[in-house]
Design a protein around this nucleic acid. Structure first.
Lengths: 218, 218
DNA sequence: ACGTACCGGATAACTTCTATCCGCTTACTT
DNA sequence: AAGTAAGCGGATAGAAGTTATCCGGTACGT
């Protein structure tokens, strides 16, 4: 039985738990979520059994680590909504949330693949979507972005930028910003003619399905 | 020893070879390149040993299948260069090459990950890059795209769109076209103000390195 | 009709990841 | 200071997936 909630741990045990979480954070950020609990244990300098004694499986570690991270993303969205300038708010949110994802390969993966992580993480993720919706709607009403943009589009754009980010991370960390900028120029309303979007946006439900089955076979 | 070149096969053997290639094409297109040679054999309705008798390993199958596919992409680029309108040429190339990639998950992967496939496939891929460079340069000289766009940018854009494509394939095949359109609006020159791109483009060499190590850990 | 080129698919040999067992050590209590 | 429960390490069993070969049998081709 893992020490999920319950009673307090012995001093050394508590310290090892912290070490494990720190090691997991590092490894997830560097290598992504598909590291092993055994990897984490070694990186933490503790035995494998210790890892399994504290966490039933990798999901539990992910859960412990990423709930707050996702909450941080949600807070970014909230702050962006407080920005009096709808365009600036939207841009700032995208820049900051992608910045967070850039530094953390694991966060990147968990943002883009809803069947990773546990219920609490999943809930945190679901709290973000409506905020993004509001950001987009507000910008549309203010007439600063193209009217045919849908809220679901942002999610796919993030996915695409994540892929780019992941590929160029080793070469030039900030490189993905070029494409964020190009994309933003593509949705800004200050031009004479838009090319009309050739297909309909996906519904929220379809989007969810798309993101769920994404990356199933890489 | 695999029957790479050499002498002619017996009738049934030759037929099985064709069956294997057809099965591989189907599976690669549907499921991507990480199917097993055993999978391919079963899908072709032949024994596993037959597959290994005809092809030393999966690479050889990929090689046999994708060289011509990549040549087809190269031909698209050539046709696009023949288009008298530089903008229309560029757009048409992107639309068509992404269309090809859409129908074929394996092609998608091989376009975006240069360490897949063998020398000949790699050569074919290297033939495409200069053509894209020409397309971009020509459009820039004609003043139809933003001047700060680099040829290497196209490759990353394709990568991003591929990721999007892959996620929404099951829900709405043509959905990625939204983002292609938005991106194209982002690089079109017919507007008053561009947001200047915040970072430099990658060199050809850096780009190659980025694409080579892409997808190493999912 | 005969030899040999070819076939099927069970299975050995790996690799990778998950999770547990068990003998030994350390922290806490009285 | 000693007893005891909590904790530790890491070898290793077990599950899953992939690669590649062996060998008894089949059927092509002359």
């Amino acid at each position: 039985m893992p020490a999920t909630g319950g009673r307090s741990l012995r001093k050394d045990a508590a310290q090892n738990r912290e070490r494990l979480l720190a090691a997991a954070a590092e490894l997830f950020a560097e290598r992504g979520l598909d590291v092993t609990l055994n990897d984490i244990a070694h990186h933490a300098g503790v035995g494998v059994a210790t890892a399994y004694r504290r966490f039933a499986n990798k999901e539990e570690v992910i859960d412990a680590l990423f709930e707050e991270r996702l909450q941080a993303v949600a807070n970014l969205a909230k702050e962006a909504l407080d920005d009096p300038d709808p365009w600036h708010g939207l841009v700032t949110f995208l820049e900051r949330s992608l910045d967070m994802q850039f530094g953390d390969r694991g966060l990147n993966q968990i943002m883009n693949n809803p069947h990773l992580g546990d219920a609490r993480v999943s809930d945190a993720r679901d709290r973000i979507a409506p905020l993004i919706e509001q950001l987009v709607e507000r910008a549309k009403r203010a007439g600063v972005i193209r009217p045919d943009l849908d809220q679901t589009d942002l999610i796919f754009i993030q996915l695409g930028l994540s892929a780019i980010m992941d590929s160029s991370r080793g070469q030039a960390p900030e490189h993905y910003r070029r494409y964020l900028t190009i994309f933003l120029d593509g949705i800004r309303a200050d031009r004479e003619t838009f090319t009309s979007l050739p297909v309909e946006a996906l519904s929220a439900h379809q989007t969810h399905r798309a993101m769920t089955r994404a990356r199933r076979a890489g």
